[in-house]
Design a protein around this nucleic acid. Structure first.
Lengths: 227, 227
DNA sequence: GCCATAGAGAGAGCAGTGCTCTTGCTTTTC
DNA sequence: GAAAAGCAAGAGCACTGCTCTCTCTATGGC
């Protein structure tokens, strides 16, 4: 392209490199990573980084969006390759989430851990954040439409209304109760992964953590009415 | 007591006051609270605080232990007052945990959120950390011994072995499969509360969050074989 | 009751942080 | 070629955790 394009490309490369270095620092410093340290690693002045990210929070936001997209893409690919039934699709999805989390514990903490103090997630993060739960919902919807799920008692109340609203938007035709069960599986999934990563399992489940996780997710599948 | 006792008591009071002020700061600054700001609030030099806590991490450890004990005590009291059946006891326990978490979101983040970078939890935190899960295990054991839980298929594998070991130590006589279900309820409980507090529910479950939580916990109870 | 001592607090100082502002320099645009 | 826009660097501000030194006071042995 034009020379303008060159500058834009260099800028994009710099932006990407800053994020890569920042991700490395995430491992040692967690969410309160040092912008100055990142700049030092890149051999540039700390003030120069502000040409690319207006603040540390903005850099964090970029990392958060990337993390959501990374886990989303990994999980979607894993599920796409699975040729088994609905339970298998659900389990392979869950295990893919866990594996990504084990590979990138600090990015997991960034998106599913305690929010960093004073940081307000902007709207840009909402869409990428929904990829995993949407995939689970789609699997459950597929199973429902295939008649693979036994009839369940309907639920009522405010939560049921909210579930109905969500169902209408993302998985029309699926009963609210079932959407609730899918959501429940997602909550259980996140809780199981976070418990493993954040140390709640230490001194009680130390060896077969994959078995632990499988047990949780089979329970979640059963609650959905699968398996 | 003697004059020595006076000094010791003043010291204990100061220690307690520092923790109280620090807990207040936790709300705005999260885990990276400022020791200097705490000192400023107390009208003393920051260096003086180091007479009471050797480092910020040591202060954090004290807050963590206090938090575990606070939620543990609240939950144990709530459960003690409940005169209903096993499901009711489990639900009142779960709701008590959630209510404490909603009242003290930053203390919840401290104990069940992402670990603070560079911080290594000392052994002193292990015992207080087990109070809630032990209470749940006791309820499940009671239900089992009362014959209130239907027979379940046993599980095998490494995780089952670990469960058996845990069962032998804390709830002897209870089948590993059932201990696993109790543990699963605890994991689900923590995940549900964290999801609510850490923002995963925003834009999908905004009104009846108690109903949402109740739904999760009834699912957990069903997995145990209750209700 | 006296006096050495241990405990408590204050202040200065070090190295680090996020972020801003000013100053030069280079690239793009007209 | 001149004007404008983008980039990088450096100094500086207010803040942080933590250490060290100094002073003062309450404590315990005699």
């Amino acid at each position: 392209m034009s020379a303008e394009g060159v500058r834009a490309r260099v800028r994009a490369e710099m932006t990407e490199e800053i994020k890569t270095v920042a991700r490395r620092h995430l491992a040692t410093d967690g969410a309160n990573l040092s912008l100055r340290a990142v700049a030092r690693d890149m051999g540039m002045a700390s003030s120069a980084v502000y040409r690319y990210f207006a603040s540390r929070d903005e850099l964090l936001t970029a990392l958060i969006i990337d993390a959501y997209d990374a886990v989303g893409e990994k999980v979607e690919n894993a599920e796409k390759r699975e040729k088994g039934g609905h339970v298998e699709r659900l389990l392979v999805t869950a295990h893919a989430v866990r594996e990504w989390a084990l590979e990138n514990p600090h990015q997991w903490a960034l998106i599913y851990g305690s929010p960093v103090p004073g940081y307000q997630a902007p709207v840009d993060t909402v869409a990428p954040a929904t990829r995993v739960i949407l995939l689970i919902a789609r699997i459950v919807q597929d199973a429902y439409e295939a008649g693979a799920i036994a009839e369940q008692a309907a639920i009522t109340g405010g939560y049921a209304d909210e579930l109905a609203r969500v169902a209408q938007q993302f998985t029309p035709g699926t009963p609210p109760r079932l959407v609730g069960a899918a959501f429940s599986a997602f909550i259980h999934l996140c809780g199981a992964v976070s418990a493993e990563l954040f140390g709640q399992l230490n001194n009680s489940v130390d060896e077969d953590r994959r078995g632990y996780f499988e047990f949780q997710m089979r329970g979640a599948a059963a609650f959905i009415g699968l398996g």
